[in-house]
Write a protein that binds this DNA or RNA. Structure first.
Lengths: 229, 229
DNA sequence: TTTTCTTTGATTTTCGAAAATTTCTGCGCA
DNA sequence: TGCGCAGAAATTTTCGAAAATCAAAGAAAA
C-alpha cells in the first residue's frame, strides 16, 4: 500500500472543503488519529501540509483549526478567481485547439445536465456532490489550455479555499439559478474565441459573490474579563 | 524557545532561494538533521511544508529534492509575476494613500542606492544579499496597498520560486543594468497614479525573463542500461 | 471581591527507533 | 555477454512515547 499519508491528506481535504468542520473548529491530531487508525504524527504532518494551501489555519503552540469565515476572505478569494480565470481562459482561447473546445463542451454538457435537474426538482441537496464536482471540472477545463501548469495549480488552491468559505446551507453552497445562463455564456465566448466577451462573462459569473452581502454566523468573542458589562 | 520548527523552516527556505543546493540535489532528512541538530522527523516536516510552496519537490517513497531548472518553469513564473504584480500595483494605485507612496519611495531609494553602487563597482557579488532583499522589498511594497492579503501571500510564494529558478552565476542572479531605469519608471507611474503606464512598466521590467533564452545547465540523464552503447 | 501566583491537567512538539519500501549489488542462467 | 532474480543496503514512512509548552483551576494575598 503506497502512501497512507496521501490517503489521509485527500480525505481530510475533502472533509474540509465540504464543510464537515464548523468554522474555527479545533483540529486535534489525537482526535483525528482515531478516524484514520494511524499515529498522531501522521495526522499532524497532513495538517501542516493543508495549512500551507490555506485549508487549515495553524498557530504556533496552539495547533490547528478550520479557518474562520469572513466577508473579506470571501471577497479576496473571488477577486483572485476572477484574475486567474480570466487570464487562464483568455490564454486558452489563444493557445487551445479544437481538442480544448471539445473538452470544454463536454464539461459544460455534464454541468448543464445537472443544473437543469436541480432547477426542475428545486432541490440542490441530493445532487450537491455531483454538482460540485461538475462545476469545478468546468472551470478547470476552461483554463486548461492556458499553457501554464503553475497557473492551473494556483487556481486549484484558490478554488478549494473559495469553496471552503462558501460551503454552508445559508449560501446554498454557492449555487444560483443564474448559473445555467452564465455557464452557457462562458462556453459561447470560448467557442467564439472572443477574449473581451470572455472577460465580461467570467466577471459577471463570479462578481456576484462580491455584491451580495454574505450571510454570516456570529462567533463567540473572547471577552477580556475586566472589560465585561 | 518557541518554534525550533519555524527556525529550521526559515533557514531551509533561505538556503533554497539562495541556490545553496544544486538543482535536482536530493534533500535527505538524515543528512540535514545534522545541520540543525534536531530529529529527522522535524526536517521531514519542514521539507513537506516547503514542497507545498514549490520550493522543494516531493515524490512519494522517493523523498525530496531541490527543483530542477527549466525554461518553461521560468517563463510560467514570469507570467504569473506579471499577472499578480500588475493587478496588485494597479489596485494599490486606487486604494493606496500618501502613506503608500511614501513607503514605495523609501523602498525605491534604498534599492536605487544599492543598484548605483553595483553599477559603479561593476560587481554584484558583494552586494548580492543586500540587493536581493531590497529588490524583493520594492516589489512587495508596490503591491502592498492592493487590499488583498491573499494576493500578497500568493505573490510571495511566486516571487520565492522565481528567485530560486533564477539564482545562478550565469544569469547574474537576475540582475541587469536596465533595472535602475525600470525601477524608476515603475515608481514614477505609481506617483502619477497612471494605471495603464504601470502595466506597461511592470511588463517591460519582467518580460525580459521571457525573451532572453535562459542559459541552462545540462543534467545527467538517467540511462536505461539496455540502451547504452 | 479582585488580583496574582502556583499547581495541575491537557495539548503540542520533538525524538529515536521499528516497519515498509525502494535501490543497489552480485550471482546464476541462457 | 546479457538478462533477471535473489539478497543486502540504504532510504523513506510510520509509530508511540518522552519532553516542552500552554491553558485552566485553585489557593493565597491584597
Amino acid at each position: 500500500m503506497a502512501g497512507q499519508d496521501a490517503d489521509v491528506y485527500d480525505d481530510m481535504r475533502h472533509r474540509l472543503i465540504t464543510g464537515e468542520f464548523e468554522y474555527g473548529t479545533k483540529l486535534r491530531a489525537e482526535k483525528l488519529r482515531q478516524d484514520y487508525g494511524c499515529s498522531a504524527s501522521t495526522v499532524r504532518e497532513v495538517l501542516f501540509r493543508l495549512s500551507t494551501v490555506g485549508l487549515v489555519e495553524f498557530q504556533e503552540q496552539r495547533g490547528f483549526r478550520a479557518p474562520y469565515q469572513s466577508v473579506e476572505q470571501q471577497h479576496e478569494l473571488t477577486h483572485m478567481r476572477i484574475l486567474l480565470e480570466t487570464e487562464g481562459a483568455c490564454q486558452s482561447i489563444r493557445l487551445g485547439g479544437v481538442e480544448w473546445e471539445s473538452r470544454l463542451t463536454a464539461a459544460h454538457h455534464k454541468l448543464s445536465h445537472i443544473e437543469t435537474r436541480v432547477r426542475t426538482s428545486g432541490d440542490l441537496t441530493p445532487l450537491l456532490d455531483l454538482w460540485s464536482r461538475a462545476e469545478q471540472e468546468f472551470h478547470e477545463t476552461l483554463i486548461d489550455a492556458c499553457g501554464s501548469e503553475l497557473l492551473k495549480r494556483t487556481h486549484v488552491v484558490i478554488y478549494d479555499q473559495f469553496r471552503q468559505q462558501l460551503v454552508s446551507v445559508e449560501t446554498n453552497y454557492g449555487y444560483f439559478p443564474e448559473n445555467i445562463r452564465e455557464h452557457q455564456a462562458i462556453l459561447d465566448a470560448a467557442l467564439e474565441r472572443n477574449e473581451d466577451l470572455m472577460r465580461v462573462c467570467v466577471n459577471d459569473h463570479l462578481a456576484r459573490n462580491l455584491t451580495r452581502p454574505m450571510p454570516r454566523k456570529v462567533y463567540p468573542e473572547v471577552f477580556d474579563k475586566s472589560s465585561a458589562i
